[in-house]
């Protein structure tokens, strides 16, 4: 029982990261109608910037995280403008290729600047905590809390602000959005900024726990993509639920069977759910 609780807790922590990253991916999917394959690399770069600011500029963890999120928001706007916007009226495959080009560029850039080896951000909150029989660190609890706060803020932004409503409007009917006077280009920029900034925050939160490395983006991007498909393309609640499911499945599979196979469980869950419900958990029928 203790192992079970411990693994579920680990799964929730993993799932927090997946959920936040996947929400960003699903928002951009709504706007572009293709997945941004470079999203995982935004995440990776966000972790690196925080690492750089903390270790080289000796900035405290929290201001470094905020700065990293702001820089990634700017990068998101830039990438939308020069990589995706010129591809808007082109066949989707062109945007796919652009996204892959972007991710290769970001990975090579980080490799050149910080080298291929992993780095570690000094953990700002390493004290262990005993919570209902679960032994953990303060940082791990913070990851979970930060994800909840971020998800609630994103939800309020989308549902309660005019800007958020325009993101939903463009996702649901691009032409309808233009016709009510929404500037679709500006909405695209804002969506990319929000999506990249949240990825940077999620990455910075877990960076003190795991290593920071140039390849961390590829695997996470792939998993976020699974989560988005699992939850239903374009669905925000789907991305949140899917993220936690994937995290818990991975942790339980890894804890009880074999840690070497934890990614097998993740992909297995995807295949199983899609076999039962091809549109994903919260997916809408196309029509």
């Amino acid at each position: 029982m203790e192992v079970f609780v411990q693994q579920v807790f680990n799964g929730i922590m993993l799932g927090s990261t997946y959920a936040v990253v996947a929400v960003g991916l699903t928002l951009v999917f709504g706007i572009l109608h293709i997945p941004n394959f470079a999203h995982g690399h935004f995440y990776m770069l966000g972790a690196y910037l925080t690492f750089f600011l903390v270790t080289s500029w000796k900035i405290d963890f929290w201001p470094a995280l905020v700065l990293s999120a702001v820089l990634l928001a700017l990068l998101g706007v830039l990438v939308e403008r020069i990589v995706f916007r010129p591809m808007r009226d082109q066949p989707h495959v062109n945007a796919f290729i652009s996204a892959i080009g972007t991710l290769m560029f970001l990975e090579a850039f980080v490799m050149v600047v910080w080298g291929p080896q992993g780095h570690r951000i000094p953990n700002p909150y390493p004290e262990t905590v005993n919570l209902l029989g679960v032994v953990t660190t303060q940082q791990r609890l913070l990851v979970i809390a930060a994800a909840v706060v971020l998800i609630v803020l994103l939800h309020l932004f989308i549902k309660k602000t005019v800007m958020g409503a325009t993101i939903e409007a463009v996702a649901q009917n691009r032409e309808g959005a233009m016709l009510v006077g929404i500037n679709v280009d500006r909405v695209s920029s804002v969506t990319f900024a929000v999506s990249a900034a949240t990825a940077a925050i999620a990455a910075s939160m877990v960076a003190p726990i795991f290593m920071v490395s140039p390849t961390m983006g590829a695997l996470l991007g792939m998993k976020a993509f699974i989560v988005v498909i699992l939850g239903g393309l374009g669905s925000v609640p789907g991305a949140i639920v899917g993220g936690y499911i994937l995290g818990i499945v991975e942790a339980l599979g890894g804890g009880y069977i074999s840690a070497d196979y934890k990614d097998v469980f993740a992909f297995g869950a995807l295949i199983l759910i899609l076999a039962i419900k091809p549109t994903g958990l919260f997916g809408k029928e196309v029509g």
Binding site: A165, T166, E168, A169, Q172, N173, G176, V180, I182
Partner: peptide, 16 residues
């Protein structure tokens, strides 16, 4: 029509 199908009637009008 080009409405926003998952948004409420009220929000559709508001976005108008």
């Amino acid at each position: 029509r080009q409405l926003f199908p998952q948004l409420s009637v009220y929000k559709n009008l508001l976005l108008g």
